[in-house]
């Protein structure tokens, strides 16, 4: 006979215990609960999160997540625990290496992390604290202050470089990336970027949030190295779609031009 049948009946569902956060973040449990929804989580040095030695500009913190040491990566999430918009990018490296570099805004000192989902359903997490002055998300973008953001909206630049068995593609999109946290400026940001082969096959895809820096820049490693141009498609929250194509030899041309 059970002494406490009610207790036994109400036992919590089988959720894997969340590992203690090596960074001691006050928001770890909250974000992990939402992001991972009970899936197994490991802190894993196989995920490299490269951060600069100092955040010189809280509006533009460069971050690289390199999870190429893991196999069968399905998703990569870049987030900063204490940002008002914690998630910056959710990346699906469809036919790409598990590598993403971009820049984010910071609103205060915060952990910055990469969370990488592998095909076995395990999230692999790494990151570090970054000390930053306040206001990265709550100060107006430079182009709003200058007043010329609309003149350059959606200008797309980029180039491609061969890198071993991959093609490194870097693109830059002119966009104010308004967070919605600045008085009288509603949220307005790039929300999706897709890289595709000439025949339209998607190679990599990402969802982008307002905590990515103004005039966002993304670096991806597409695989296998394609011979044709890579189609880039970016859509913002206002429905503006920007498209372009990165020529496979554009990086080499750039390097030659600078050397000259």
């Amino acid at each position: 006979m059970r002494l406490f049948p009610s207790l036994a009946a109400s036992a919590a569902p089988a959720v894997g215990p969340l590992p203690a956060d090596p960074l001691g973040s006050p928001m770890w449990t909250y974000h992990a609960g939402k992001l991972f929804a009970g899936a197994p989580v490991v802190f894993d040095p196989a995920v490299r999160v490269d951060l600069p030695m100092l955040a010189e500009n809280q509006h533009v913190l460069p971050v690289t997540i390199d999870a190429r040491a893991l196999s069968a990566v399905r998703r990569m999430v870049l987030f900063a625990d204490l940002n008002p918009i914690p998630i910056a990018v959710e990346y699906e490296p469809l036919a790409a290496h598990a590598y993403l570099a971009t820049r984010i805004k910071l609103d205060q000192r915060t952990p910055v992390r990469g969370a990488v989902l592998t095909a076995d359903g395990v999230w692999h997490v790494a990151g570090g604290w970054v000390d930053a002055a306040g206001g990265g998300c709550s100060a107006p973008p430079v182009s709003r202050v200058r007043g010329d953001w609309a003149d350059h909206l959606g200008e797309l630049r980029g180039a491609a470089w061969p890198q071993g068995d991959a093609t490194r593609v870097r693109i830059a999109i002119r966009h104010p990336m308004d967070t919605g946290l600045v008085e009288n400026i509603p949220a307005y940001n790039i929300e999706e970027v897709t890289f595709a082969a000439e025949d339209g096959t998607p190679l990599a895809r990402m969802t982008v949030h307002g905590s990515v820096s103004e005039d966002p820049v993304f670096t991806v490693l597409l695989s296998p190295a394609g011979r044709g141009p890579v189609a880039v498609n970016a859509r913002d929250t206002g429905g503006v779609v920007v498209t372009g194509a990165v020529a496979p030899r554009s990086g080499a041309a750039l390097a030659a031009a600078v050397r000259r």
Binding site: N57, G154, L156, A159, A257
Partner: peptide, 19 residues
């Protein structure tokens, strides 16, 4: 210095790729 100069250099050196 990377933080000070890099975004400007990218804007100046990268070719436009939009149609």
């Amino acid at each position: 210095s990377v933080s000070h100069f890099y975004p400007g250099l990218e804007a100046a050196l990268f070719p436009r790729i939009d149609a």
